[in-house]
Design a protein around this nucleic acid. Structure first.
Lengths: 334, 334
DNA sequence: TTGTATGCGTTATCAC
DNA sequence: GTGATAACGCATACAA
């Protein structure tokens, strides 16, 4: 009653050997057009689907890769996922998603099942690579690519924008618009990827233009969420009531900051200019629409997948890629 | 050089047969504590990881399911994905994501590779089940669950809210707030899942309260996106300038409508109340924060996965589940 | 051009 | 308690 056919059934049905069936299934040639016809017909009639498990057992290829996120459901992650998924699928492979919740135990558990499933590569998004992780992934001997993060201790290819440079650009943009009193809402300075570098870029721009006295106008938060921006804005304004512009380290935070400002009766951009970071879809939806530094998230996902496949094909590592960031001008800066 | 150990290596290393190794790996008992110790030690030392392919080949279980979305990167999808992923992972299985782009060909191609990979179940999110899809999935003989959609022709369990009822609730809420001139921005009425039913619910509420004359104050759009709401609002207001409230069929659209209104100098909620649908994270981020009908998206994902596993365990189908919707009161309705 | 036989890494059914 | 050995479904080297 289990209707699922295997290569043997096809062989019998077509009156050939399983070797021949295998050949036509894999387009290897070495058979007459007639037998090919026969086999194809049998396959059709029996609705035969080759078993990827059996196939993979021999070929050592599973055509499956995995992507790990600390939070799959963020707008940030889902854009990257889309890029990854698209190019992986184009190549005939599949992607397994993992939501690590930035939890070490959970991640290790994931890694274990992925290893058992013999996935062919891993993409880590926005994750810090700990020593434990590194031990496991290097023991797996499969390609790994980092997205929107990088490792200083370990040599793992990554694709990301230059955070410090991007933050510089954003701040520089504000300055060129004529602003002199500029503040920043930042992530956690202990965050070596998206925290400190963006602060550094901000400060770089200030100093370059001799605006050093602004350097203390920074409020840091642990996360990059709406609520963080919402709560940070009043704090920042208390420290520095005369600010005319702020650089906010994420669009979600920027959106929160705008909400807080609006509630306080502060008009954006008339009384306060704000520039964000990421260029999420959200940035088009705020009032006013958010001027921001764009990271090409989907493209970064695609690129990461492409790099992974290249490593898979060549067996060698691959160069990291710094993606270009751009300023998207909308209406939140004057 | 290929460092990857198999059960044979372990057996040799521990001086036992592979059968014994298999037993301790699977905790089957039937061996002395001493040999268990030996084997465990060997496994440890060789860093042995059982091969899921070989295992699945025999057990016919791959511990992998798939989720198909028309658009993975929407805030809507990603919340559902998170719910699915969490409960699937809890059970020790993995989830493969597929972005169908609502494209039949692409979907069929996905289905084919999923079938070859012998995945154990499928969750369709927001997809119409065509005859072609149905033919394939029923030939696969694996459990299928629908999320945020349902099929009238085929008997497939689903989990969704009652759209008509939810739309009724939203409109009713507006009416109970004292509004009498109420409009709607709707999806496509040809959309049998999220289009027509929400319009029906809207109209139900109107009629129940004798507000029949409002019935034509509906603007329909093909999609549920920000831009749709943004463009629909002026159209709606042109048709019916005296509206005091609108029900919008998605949060993204509602956000667009609020943006358009604000640009026109119309204050929300003072001059125009807006209620949305979905309760995406976005709803907290608008100005003013959006009152909306909540769908428990993450929970729906969890539920769908749970249903899938239940079908997998029992071999029987499972009852569909209508999830409760609730009105989330924020600041966009007065 | 086609078929036979072996192996991929497991689990499971027998024996012992 | 423990160990051969036959599947599982396929690819492939080798024969024919």
């Amino acid at each position: 009653m289990t209707n699922i056919k295997n290569i043997k059934d096809v062989a019998k049905h077509a009156n050939v050997s399983i070797a021949t069936v295998s050949r036509v299934v894999n387009n290897l040639g070495g058979y007459s057009p007639a037998t090919k016809e026969k086999v194809l017909k049998a396959i059709e009639e029996l609705e035969y689907q080759p078993n990827a498990l059996a196939r993979g057992l021999i070929s050592k290829r599973t055509e499956t890769i995995a992507v790990l996120f600390p939070e799959v459901s963020s707008m940030f992650s889902s854009k990257i996922l889309k890029g990854v998924e698209e190019t992986v699928h184009q190549r005939g492979s599949s992607v397994i998603v993992c939501n690590t919740s930035a939890d070490g135990e959970k991640t290790l558990k994931y890694l274990k099942v992925l290893q058992e499933k013999r996935i062919e590569g891993i993409i880590f998004v926005s994750e810090m690579i700990t020593e434990e992780y590194y031990k496991v992934i290097s023991s797996m001997k499969i390609p790994v690519v980092l997205v929107s993060t990088e490792s200083y201790q370990y040599s793992i290819p990554y694709v990301k924008v230059n955070d410090r440079h991007a933050a510089f650009s954003a701040t520089d943009y504000l300055i060129k618009k004529g602003h002199k009193k500029i503040g920043m809402i930042s992530g956690n300075p202990k965050d070596i990827i998206a925290g400190q570098p963006r602060m550094d870029g901000f400060l770089d721009a200030l100093r370059l233009h001799g605006l050093n006295e602004n350097e203390k106008n920074i409020v840091c938060r642990d996360n990059f969420l709406f609520a963080d921006g919402y709560q940070a804005l009043p704090q920042l304004l208390e420290k520095a009531p005369d600010l005319t512009a702020i650089f906010v380290a994420s669009d979600e935070m920027a959106c929160g900051a705008i909400s807080a400002a609006t509630e306080k009766g502060i008009n954006v951009p008339d009384q306060l200019s704000v520039i964000g970071y990421d260029n999420l879809p959200l940035a088009e939806m705020t009032i006013p629409p958010l001027t921001t530094v764009s990271q090409p998230l989907e493209e970064m996902g695609e690129k990461a997948a492409t790099m992974l496949f290249k490593m898979l094909e060549t067996g060698e590592s691959v160069e990291s890629r710094i993606m270009p960031h751009t300023i998207i001008e909308r209406k939140s800066v004057k």
